[in-house]
């Protein structure tokens, strides 16, 4: 009976754990291949996704539907993920939250983009651009390639898949 009380408390603990997280907790990342739910982040909640403890390849790409060179390179990232399924690829959209349902989701569907997409809604960009990379001017596309030990920043669109692969290989040449 008494150990029962303890086990109930232990059972409840994970829920308390959940309650103790910051108020701006984004919804969990969308399952691969589905854009049923595109989480909205501010910079503070996005920042943990820009680093990892893992040894696997991570790519975070800042883009927007209104950015022509960004839109042009999305298929490259899609091709990369198809070729290297272990890589973690996140598209951080700088589009506007009110456009998610009406524009962003139809856009992703039309373009055949199945990569994970999150939306960064944090208008005071001067506050956070340097926190991503002090050398970043704020122009997009902007891509971060990293694992737990290596990291490179790219303020340019990739030309083609070999260009992206070469850039990734250069980032991890020491591992």
């Amino acid at each position: 009976m008494r150990p029962g009380v303890l086990s109930i408390i232990i059972f409840i603990l994970p829920f308390c754990f959940g309650l103790s997280s910051p108020p701006y907790t984004p919804t969990p990342a969308t399952p691969y291949g589905s854009h049923a739910d595109i989480p909205i982040y501010n910079f503070d909640s996005l920042e943990p996704l820009l680093s990892t403890d893992s040894e696997s390849i991570h790519i975070v790409n800042f883009w927007a539907m209104w950015c022509a060179p960004c839109v042009k390179e999305l298929p490259l990232l899609e091709q990369y993920k198809a070729k290297y399924p272990d890589a973690s690829v996140l598209l951080v959209s700088l589009d506007f939250p009110e456009d998610i349902e009406t524009k962003l989701k139809p856009f992703l569907k039309k373009k055949g983009i199945t990569l994970k997409v999150a939306l960064l809604d944090d208008p005071d960009a001067n506050r956070w651009i340097d926190r991503v990379d002090p050398n970043w001017s704020g122009a997009i596309p902007f891509t971060i390639i990293f694992d737990n030990k290596n990291r490179s920043f790219h303020e340019r669109p990739f030309n083609d898949l070999p260009d992206l692969e070469q850039t990734i290989n250069n980032t991890f040449k020491n591992r």
Binding site: R131, N135, R151, H154, R156, T167
Partner: peptide, 19 residues
């Protein structure tokens, strides 16, 4: 968070062909 000041400690920031 991401490394400050452009990296260090094994990070190798790279800026090529940028605007």
């Amino acid at each position: 968070g991401p490394p400050r000041g452009g990296g260090g400690g094994g990070h190798n920031p790279e800026q090529t062909e940028t605007l």
